[in-house]
Design a protein around this nucleic acid. Structure first.
Lengths: 209, 209
DNA sequence: GTCCAAGTAAAGCGATCGATGTACTTTGAA
DNA sequence: TTCAAAGTACATCGATCGCTTTACTTGGAC
């Protein structure tokens, strides 16, 4: 009857709705903020009908949490891959996290965004509300510290706990300044500072080089 | 007539509406977030009628900007005061900013909040919208860097620009981790890291003490 | 005592928010 | 070929958003 029902052509994104929603969430929540991104904007970007959205996610909040879980899983995986490359010394492992950060944060779509860490940003936006988000971020950042601390111990640092926490401060600072200064350059400073802190924390046995 | 007009007793906060609004903004915007704080919540906390609010501020956004300007002015003043104390060496001046940070961030009302830097948080919430906010934050953080760089130069650092930027990364990292970890402890680690970076950046002339 | 700036209450504006309901169409596998 | 799963359009819900309006009441300076 009349070729395609009434008026509007009946195509939108097609079959992979859930994946498109998650991609749109990753882009919009990160680049424009969680509160600032409404459902309407989300489903428009994902090329998905509102109804379909709510068949995949019970609430917007559920999508936010899955978005953060996905980011956290991906980041954890990338760190693991980075650290498990052939024969890196513990020192180089520590530094590799900084160089990784220096390459990392261009948004999807390739465009530079300088919007810092999605998890931290979510914690800021969550404020008091959304305790699950707070918890996820808390857990992730503690995990990073633990990882840094472990490598610092293997590197033979005099006080591995302190060095691990200090390096984490540097990582977080570089990422945060990205947002405040709208510039990616703090990451290089963090790398150099990390070098100094690591060298200072290791026992003086400098075998020439 | 009937004693007090119709029903409700006609008292609210009384005369100092503007000041109460700014105090409520400082508390709520910081502790609960800017987007999450609606006008209704704001005027309730400030003990002010909605009408009065809009006689003092054209829009909510104008209040946000004044809140940030006030915070920025206060912080700048406190830094100046802190640096201009009697006979601090440049090294001690640099470190004093870290100890200052370590005491600083308990919210109004004395309660500990661990919500990081109001300016950074505002930049995160602003995302792409609110360019004036972005600009204010950008300007403030650049000012801090400039200040650190200047002192680093006076301290005789080999590369004062780099040291200034590195210390700024530490300051920002400590403040940011406050939010992500919901803990004030990163500030102590930042202080110790700053000691190391400063010492490393100065020429080796260590005159005993 | 008069007057006016400052403050108040309460109703309501249009817009947008997150979320649902109804009814229809496409797709892919059995 | 059939049929259920997946997707779509569109209208709408109540709540809340930022903000405005009308009409009234104080407090303090003169």
């Amino acid at each position: 009857m009349e070729t395609e029902s009434a008026a509007g052509t009946r195509q939108r994104g097609g079959r992979g709705a859930r994946e498109r929603i998650l991609q749109a969430a990753a882009k919009l929540f990160y680049e424009e903020g969680i509160h600032a991104t409404g459902i309407a904007r989300l489903v428009e970007t994902a090329q998905v009908s509102t109804r379909t959205f709510y068949q995949h996610f019970p609430t917007k909040n559920a999508l936010v949490e899955e978005y953060l879980r996905n980011y956290e899983a991906g980041m954890t995986r990338r760190i693991e891959q980075n650290l498990s490359r052939r024969g890196l010394s513990p020192q180089d492992q520590l530094l590799s996290l900084f160089t990784m950060l220096a390459e990392a944060t261009s948004g999807p779509s390739g465009r530079m965004t300088n919007r810092g860490c999605p998890l931290h940003n979510a914690a800021v936006e969550a404020a008091g509300h959304m305790p699950d988000v707070q918890e996820l971020v808390h857990h992730h950042k503690n995990g990073i510290t633990r990882q840094l601390t472990g490598i610092a111990a293997r590197a033979g640092a005099a006080n591995p706990d302190q060095l691990g926490r200090q390096l984490n401060v540097l990582l977080e600072g570089a990422t945060a300044l990205q947002t405040s200064l709208d510039s990616p350059c703090p990451r290089h400073d963090a790398l150099e500072a990390a070098r100094v802190l690591i060298e200072h924390a290791l026992p003086k046995t400098r075998p020439a080089n």
